[in-house]
Design a binder for these strands. Structure first.
Lengths: 130, 130
DNA sequence: GCTTTGTTCTATAACTCATAGATCATAGGA
DNA sequence: TCCTATGATCTATGAGTTATAGAACAAAGC
């Protein structure tokens, strides 16, 4: 497990945890059926409260990325189609992309940066199966 | 001025205001020298407190997007190079892009969506100068 | 002189974040 | 069977954020 949190960040801990899990799934480090650490275990590893981990897992469950069961723990599930997700995501992407453009980054460089990030996800998956 | 806020959104009002201004700059609806509405005026238009608008403007000033002066008001300025911005932005882009990939959107479709959003910025600018 | 503007203080109610402790139900292993 | 590990569910608290509100100040323009 290669999850990390930054205690000095202004991003909430539970949000950071969610983000790291999402990135791990995108990169293929976690795939359908992969188990996540027990909430108390992960909390202990990071030196944070297990309620905080619980909140991150609950968020991931609400977003349809993991399944929570007693004893089986948290398990990554196959993504389910969500009709409103694309629209919501695009709105957030619009804000993020606008921020780069507004601060003078040329549009083609922004697109290249996105391409490079997406490539790191694919690269990770290829490594896993190689 | 085509700024809007959603009072029922869970995104803080000052954050929404900042986002809309950033998007307007990226789209060319606001460019260097463009004045923003007075804080009290904008607050009155939206039916919100002027301190909330003040906070949004202060955020935009800290991020180097506008200049604040007495009487001249808030004015959009040319973007200044910020060495840490690219790294910070890329980290946030990684999280956002990962979210789409983790939820089953193919990488090429994600990239196309980014391309389309960036195109809307260019299209707006072309309309302005046409 | 008056208005408009950003700027700066205090204050407050509601909410979020992270912590803490306790308890419960359930499934698995010793 | 007993014990443990696990997620699930309550209460509670302190620190911080969000949005509101009111008041006052300094500077620029009419």
């Amino acid at each position: 497990m290669i999850l990390t949190v930054d205690l000095s960040s202004d991003v909430p801990l539970y949000q950071q945890l969610r983000d790291r899990v999402v990135e791990a799934i995108a990169a293929g480090d976690l795939s359908e059926g992969s188990p996540l650490p027990a909430t108390r275990t992960l909390a202990s590893d990071f030196g944070i409260n297990f309620h905080t981990v619980n909140k991150a897992y609950e968020l991931l469950r609400q977003q349809g990325l993991i399944r929570l069961n007693r004893k089986t723990g948290a398990v990554v599930i196959a993504p389910v189609a969500n009709p409103t997700f694309r629209a919501d995501w695009t709105a957030r992407a619009r804000t993020l992309l606008a921020e780069a453009v507004a601060r003078g980054v040329p549009a083609d460089e922004v697109l290249t940066a996105c391409h490079d990030v997406l490539h790191t996800f694919n690269a990770s998956q290829l490594e896993d199966t190689a």
